[in-house]
């Protein structure tokens, strides 16, 4: 019992990402409204961002900015040896930084498509759009 509890608490970031990802996927596939699908897509992307950023985390480490960079701030001179364990992993942060901006861009394009669909069919419900398509 305590082992299961330790597993749940020790890896809670992964459980959260799985829950968020499934919520996003559910909304993307099951929901009927296009805007709700887009919201699902955004939740899905957020889940992936959470996953990556939590992978980069290390206990007892700080943000990946070198504190005593040697010039300017008065500490001066002493180029201390930098230990990798003192700073969290910068790589997932870089990847997610660009992923956030790209997700905004894809969201913008998706919204533009939704606007065009609405102008053409006067609805954003998927079944109604399909009905209009068969009528034509």
């Amino acid at each position: 019992m305590s082992e299961t509890l330790a597993l749940i608490i020790g890896k809670y970031n992964y459980w959260l990402y799985i829950i968020l990802m499934m919520i996003g996927l559910y909304a993307m596939i099951v929901k009927n409204n296009l805007i709700k699908k887009l919201v699902g897509m955004n939740i899905f992307q957020t889940a992936i961002i959470l996953f990556y950023v939590s992978i980069g985390y290390k206990t007892h480490a700080t943000i990946p900015i070198i504190k005593d960079s040697g010039h300017g701030d008065g500490h001066g001179g002493g180029h201390a040896v930098i230990h990798a364990a003192d700073y969290i992993n910068p790589l997932p942060h870089v990847l997610m930084l660009t992923a956030i901006v790209v997700s905004v861009a894809t969201f913008g394009v998706a919204m533009a498509l939704a606007v065009r669909v609405y102008q053409r069919y006067q609805t954003l419900e998927e079944d109604e759009i399909r009905m209009r398509l068969t009528e034509e």
């Binding site: 985390y57 290390k58 480490a61 990798a84 364990a85 992993n89 910068p90 790589l91």
Partner: peptide, 13 residues
């Protein structure tokens, strides 16, 4: 969570 020797933190970073 927070393992400093995880695979993601032990090769390139």
């Amino acid at each position: 969570l927070g393992d400093p020797s995880s695979p993601a933190s032990s090769h390139l970073s």
